[in-house]
């Protein structure tokens, strides 16, 4: 028995160090979310306040993060932009999760043509490399924040459905499902009331990691001019507008939103992996 008390220690050490990083990341994310929520109170300027006397200024006392090509305050723009940049991924994952959970559970539970159809649809979608499927949907629906969110939700739905399907399939062979079935609980009821809540912990970590991915995709689409349109200060759009400044030798207009996108994605990934680990450990 002594091995049981000795062995966890070396395994715990890297874990607790990783915990510190995960902590820092969580705090950073909370700060960003609070900043986005309280943007009107925290921002020193209006996000669209033009000041031609102060274009492309470096960080100083008046403008903590500098200004862009129209003299707009980058800190204020970043704070307001956080709303579009964070709300977009939340909305699209919400849409995709609801649809994906329903389709994935149905495919695993019923099998048959629903399962085949899901497999065919994912086959065709995965035939488009990278973000090209989303680009096609945008070509059809037109540009704009709303259409990019819908397009990305469409792209993420089969991904989530496939993951749900694998989780539900693993869950269905567990004894409690048969137990409820014997008690006469209807299959729909078992699926909704017992199976979905049981796969939720595994879902959460996966969704957090997907959030980082979705944020990056959304920013990329905005950068290409497909997503949020001016005067929004969505971070990807801010990078696009700052691009001309970089060639002129001013890097703050790109660095501020670019660093924010990168830091949030990294932080979300770290926290997501940590949550998945925790949930899996608890399940065991």
């Amino acid at each position: 028995m002594s091995t049981l008390t000795v062995t966890p220690l070396p395994a715990l050490q890297p874990r607790s160090r990783f915990g510190v990083i995960a902590w820092v990341c969580s705090v950073f994310l909370v700060v960003i979310v609070v900043g986005a929520l309280l943007a009107p109170m925290l921002a020193p300027y209006a996000p669209d306040e033009i000041d031609f006397d102060n274009i492309w200024s470096s960080p100083n006392a008046a403008h903590w993060l500098g200004t862009d090509q129209l003299g707009r305050d980058l800190l204020s723009r970043a704070l307001f932009g956080a709303r579009d940049s964070l709300l977009g991924p939340v909305l699209l994952l919400l849409l995709a999760t609801v649809a994906g959970l329903a389709i994935g559970t149905l495919a695993a539970w019923k099998g048959g043509w629903v399962d085949t159809l899901l497999a065919r649809i994912t086959d065709v979608m995965f035939a488009f490399p990278g973000i090209l499927f989303v680009v096609l949907v945008i070509a059809v629906l037109g540009q704009g924040a709303a259409t990019t969110i819908v397009a990305l939700a469409l792209a993420y739905t089969p991904v989530i459905a496939k993951y749900t399907r694998s989780l539900v399939l693993a869950e269905m062979v567990r004894p409690y499902v048969d137990a409820y079935r014997l008690q006469g609980v209807s299959p729909t009821s078992i699926a909704v009331r017992f199976v979905v809540p049981n796969i939720a912990p595994s879902m959460v970590g996966y969704l957090v990691v997907l959030f980082g991915d979705a944020l990056m995709s959304l920013a990329t689409l905005s950068y290409l001019g497909f997503g949020s349109q001016p005067p929004s200060s969505e971070w990807g759009l801010m990078v696009q507008e700052g691009q001309s400044a970089v060639i002129q030798g001013y890097f703050w207009p790109v660095f501020v939103p670019g660093a924010l996108i990168a830091l949030v994605v990294v932080a979300v990934n770290v926290v997501g992996v940590k949550i998945s680990d925790r949930m899996n450990a608890r399940m065991r």
């Binding site: 920013a219 950068y223 990807g236 990078v239 670019g258 990168a262």
Partner: peptide, 23 residues
């Protein structure tokens, strides 16, 4: 490498442009 794959390619590109191209 994991960190690099979390950075959007357009941000990497513009940072390279600024450091190695413009400066």
């Amino acid at each position: 490498t994991t960190l690099l794959s979390s950075l959007p390619s357009f941000v990497i590109g513009l940072i390279l442009v600024y450091v190695l191209g413009v400066n």
